[in-house]
């Protein structure tokens, strides 16, 4: 069991890091030949950074679009963010200040995440328009996240696992040393699902996380008259002409 998970998490981490790295490299490498920010758009780079921050942190556009959906999404994402930060303690020998700070929020955050996911799933099943655009993979993704959240919450609230041993396993893994992992069924399911999530991340719609920052409608300054924007392949067309 321990060996299986040691291998699984090594594979999952490599897939996540390399897969995501390749995708980000692809986005960064692909030119944006034209200025296409959705206007009104910021005129300066700090302005663009602020716009992206608003999109990433408070989901500005989604707020304009749909208030209930914004609440559901915020519940899930903020909950997830806190839970993720809290999980850093499984990878640190000394618990850092940020992790300590969110410690009391752990339970409400987990709950928010769970409720958010249930609302998002319910919405997909109930609303005709959303049911129409929902594919099997969209449902599976929510089920996967729900599985992770439910098993995690159960371990926090009811069926405790040996968290010290879990921590030892992961800190050990970071130093390429295999330490034994508790065999509790809930933990096994939890970790299995997390590993699956890590593996599918670079191949799925979860790419929206890094992708947002490469979205030309959001990350460009509105300065086409002031600065000539010319990508490499477009510049080559000019060489041909003159």
């Amino acid at each position: 069991m321990t060996t299986f998970f040691a291998i699984l998490f090594t594979v999952a981490t490599l897939t996540l890091v390399i897969g995501l790295g390749l995708k980000i490299a692809q986005y960064a490498r692909t030119p944006a030949p034209l200025k296409i920010p959705t206007t009104p758009a910021p005129l300066t780079k700090p302005g663009v950074a602020f716009r992206l921050a608003r999109e990433a942190v408070v989901f500005e556009s989604l707020f304009k679009a749909n208030k209930p959906l914004w609440i559901f999404a915020a519940l899930f994402h903020f909950g997830l963010a806190v839970v993720l930060v809290r999980h850093v303690r499984y990878f640190q020998t000394e618990v850092g200040p940020l992790v300590a700070l969110v410690q009391p929020l752990a339970l409400p955050a987990g709950l928010a995440m769970l409720i958010g996911l249930l609302l998002l799933l319910g919405r997909r099943l109930v609303l005709e328009r959303i049911r129409y655009i929902t594919g099997r993979s969209d449902i599976l993704m929510l089920v996967l996240l729900l599985g992770i959240a439910v098993t995690g919450m159960f371990m926090t609230k009811h069926v405790h696992t040996d968290v010290v041993a879990v921590k030892a396993f992961f800190t050990g893994l970071l130093g390429f040393e295999i330490r034994s992992l508790p065999g509790d069924p809930l933990l096994v399911v939890h970790l299995l699902l997390v590993a699956i999530l890590m593996i599918v991340f670079p191949f799925s719609k979860l790419l929206h996380a890094p992708g947002l920052f490469f979205s030309p409608t959001r990350n460009q300054t509105d300065t086409p008259r002031e600065h000539r924007h010319l990508c490499d392949w477009a510049a080559k067309l000019e060489d041909k002409r003159s």
Binding site: K23, P31, K205, L207, H208, G211, F214, S215
Partner: peptide, 17 residues
Amino acid sequence: KYRSLQVFMDICVKCGA
């Protein structure tokens, strides 16, 4: 050739906004 196209193909989460 178009970052917009490549990124937009990948990042839709089908949220329905």
